[in-house]
Design a protein around this nucleic acid. Structure first.
Length: 644
DNA sequence: CCAGGGCGTCTTTTT
DNA sequence: GACGCCCTGG
């Protein structure tokens, strides 16, 4: 049953969008205008009218948003059995490809590889190229290659076009880069590997080539809703367009002023283009903001009006004026951190709860100084974004063992595991992994050259044989056995801080408990990697976050809101980031990013500008205030003077 | 061909 | 402050 309170929570704009039933629609919803509430209400309403929840598909780019929404919709229509299907485009694509692997020309058990796997493969392929060093410019690194190939896929560009337009300094290497791209493609297909882009690419291919499959998949849902549509790329829009052949009830929701993912190929124009894709699409707009004070909105509107493109949705609110935005120049990061600690303490004294306070920044490392100070004064905090938990060496290692247990022919997994053995480097590890991939029996070492074999390698073989012979079904049990081996034989030798790293492995073990099969666990961890230590263990996170303030990158803060928000390091070169300074489009994106940061605040917004930052990336010593300060500055702001 | 040390690079943001 | 790459000696 629908909770009746919910009706009264919707204004006219929201009601119209939420009550819309059949056909395509686009909803342009500014920051803080109740976008999530509207989507959730629409879902709940459909369910209350008899649509089974599992026939509603909710697609988003990040899983955080997806989980959040299906939870809320569930609460709303609580007597309903079952739940809304929700997920990211990537997880939906994986579902499709697993179901129709034959039609997609794949093996039943294909492996999904993450970005660092791609880089590793590219690294080994790259060794065959760029040998004659006669050019006076630097050939692309593994990482750059990975980015280039990914950009091609997301933007539907040929490599040649991409290099000739955006990366002209690689023109001398074009031929070799093209060859590496071919090699990479063959390597993936020989080993049944799909990278993130392939998931989307193959699904789009499948949908365009096989109408039967498209129809079968389409018949699984009646309603599709897409959140944060401004963050989708060409392939995702294409996937949606194809689904539209049979599914007419598609609603996309988004805000082009909050498009902050162009760096990975997002096209915010997808939002304004939607009516071209679906001719009879109805457009809704949400413009009334419920989140922020008048002052915060004034300054935010002021800033976004400088944007050169977009709908320029001007937000309005009936909220009180509130206090002015504090612009606070500081001498250096030390003083900045001190000031923030002091002001946070004041906020806490005035009765604001810790979880209603957030500090936002452009890049993870901008907060290092502040983190140290918060630790010294014993103020608990959680940090979102920045550091990537699963990319740490020890966890990549552990996951490799799991991959081998799951699939003993996984060359990439073997490579990593073997290189941890004394006497085995890249060459031998490659030879052995290829031999193992060729063998009929799992863990068959009989064709490995004898001089490669030592006690450590035999121990590895025995351990793997033994674990796999136990036929554990629970991934957590396998993980335990692996950890046992890894700790004894590798970890202590490899790291001087192994006890600290062991905590991460424990955390991974905690997540593994909620999975019943190793394959599911591995797939999930690649498609939806946990962001940090804190949200690994949900229970402890909830307890913790009650008493903790939040530190977050602006990207990870999207969709969130807090009573009091700080934006730190608002200096030219940090925010906007120095890498963005050279192109107009990237400055535009930085501005939207700053806008997202500002509009997270409900009541108090404080922006700090250290005049001196030491930055190994940009080498800035004295810094100018961020250009966005003058762009946002208006009657709603005041500049503070700190005593030295 | 491997191990280990030194040195440079990088950190923008995520599936 | 961590990691990867390159060089050298064994």
């Amino acid at each position: 049953m629908l909770n009746p309170d919910f009706f009264s929570n919707l204004n006219q704009e929201q009601l119209e969008a939420a009550a819309f039933k059949d056909g395509p629609a686009v909803c342009i919803a500014g920051a803080g205008t109740g976008k999530t509430r509207t989507i959730v209400y629409r879902a709940a309403k459909l369910i209350s009218e008899g649509i089974p929840p599992e026939r509603i598909l909710l697609l988003t780019f990040t899983r955080k948003a997806a989980n959040n929404m299906s939870e809320r919709a569930k609460q709303l229509a609580d007597s309903v059995q079952g739940s809304i299907r929700s997920g990211t485009f990537h997880s939906f694509a994986t579902y499709v490809l697993k179901k129709f692997y034959l039609e997609a020309g794949l093996k039943r058990s294909f492996t999904i590889i993450d970005t660092s796997d791609s880089k590793q493969i590219l690294g080994s392929l790259r060794k065959n190229y760029f040998k004659n060093n006669t050019y006076n410019s630097k050939p692309p690194t593994n990482s750059t290659l990975q980015k280039l190939f990914s950009a091609c896929a997301a933007q539907k560009l040929s490599l040649k076009e991409l290099i000739n337009t955006e990366h002209t300094h690689f023109e001398p290497f074009l031929k070799e880069i093209l060859q590496i791209k071919d090699d990479y493609k063959s390597y993936k297909s020989e080993n049944s590997l799909l990278d993130y882009d392939d998931l989307l690419l193959k699904t789009v291919e499948l949908f365009s080539n096989d109408e039967r499959v498209l129809q079968l998949i389409s018949s699984e849902q009646d309603y599709i809703m897409v959140d944060e549509y401004q963050d989708t790329n060409f392939l995702q829009a294409e996937m949606l367009r194809l689904l539209g052949h049979f599914n007419h009830n598609i609603m996309v929701v988004g805000d082009d002023s909050q498009s902050i993912y162009a760096f990975r190929g997002a096209e915010f124009k997808n939002l304004s283009d939607f009516p071209n894709l679906f001719k009879e699409a109805k457009t809704f707009r949400l413009t009334q903001n419920y989140r922020s004070t008048q002052n915060i909105l004034n300054a935010s509107n002021h800033l976004i009006s400088k944007a050169s493109e977009g709908f320029k949705n001007k937000l309005e609110t009936e909220n009180p004026e509130g206090s002015k935005i504090a612009i606070v120049p500081c001498m250096n990061e030390e003083q900045e951190s001190l000031f923030i600690c002091k002001r946070i303490t004041d906020f806490l004294k005035s009765g604001i709860k810790p979880k209603e306070i957030a500090v936002l920044f452009r890049a993870g490392y901008h907060a290092f100084r502040l983190e140290m100070m918060l630790k010294t004064i014993n103020l608990p905090f959680v940090k979102w974004g920045g550091f990537k938990f699963l990319e740490s060496v020890h966890l990549k290692d552990i996951i490799s063992y799991l991959r081998i247990i799951n699939n003993p022919w996984d060359k990439l997994g073997w490579l990593r595991v073997l290189m941890d053995i004394k006497g085995i480097g890249l060459k031998r590890a490659t030879d052995i992994s290829e031999e193992l991939a060729r063998s009929e029996e799992p863990f068959d070492f009989s064709n490995i050259p004898e001089n490669f074999i030592n006690t450590e390698l035999s121990l590895l073989q025995q351990t793997m044989l033994q674990i796999s012979s136990q036929n554990f079904t629970q991934p957590s049990l396998i993980l335990n056995a692996i950890t046992d081996y890894y700790l004894k034989n590798v970890m202590k030798k490899k790291f001087d801080n192994y006890t600290e790293r062991l905590k991460d492995i424990d955390a991974l073990a905690a997540i593994s408990l909620s999975f019943d099969s190793l394959d599911d666990f591995l797939t999930s961890i690649i498609l939806e990697p946990p962001e940090n230590m804190q949200n690994l263990n949900l229970a402890s996170q909830n307890e913790q976050s009650e008493d903790s303030i939040t530190l977050s990158t602006v990207h990870s803060a999207k969709g969130m809101e807090w009573e009091a928000v700080f934006i730190i390091s608002a200096v030219q070169g940090r925010f906007p980031n120095f890498k963005a300074l050279k192109s107009k489009e990237e400055i535009e994106e930085e501005r939207r990013l700053f806008y997202v940061a500002m509009t997270r605040a409900k009541k108090h917004l404080t922006i700090t500008l250290p005049q001196e930052v030491s930055d190994f990336a940009s080498n800035i010593s004295t810094s100018q205030p961020s250009q966005f300060i003058s762009e946002l500055y208006c009657d709603s702001c005041e500049t503070w003077k700190l005593l030295p």
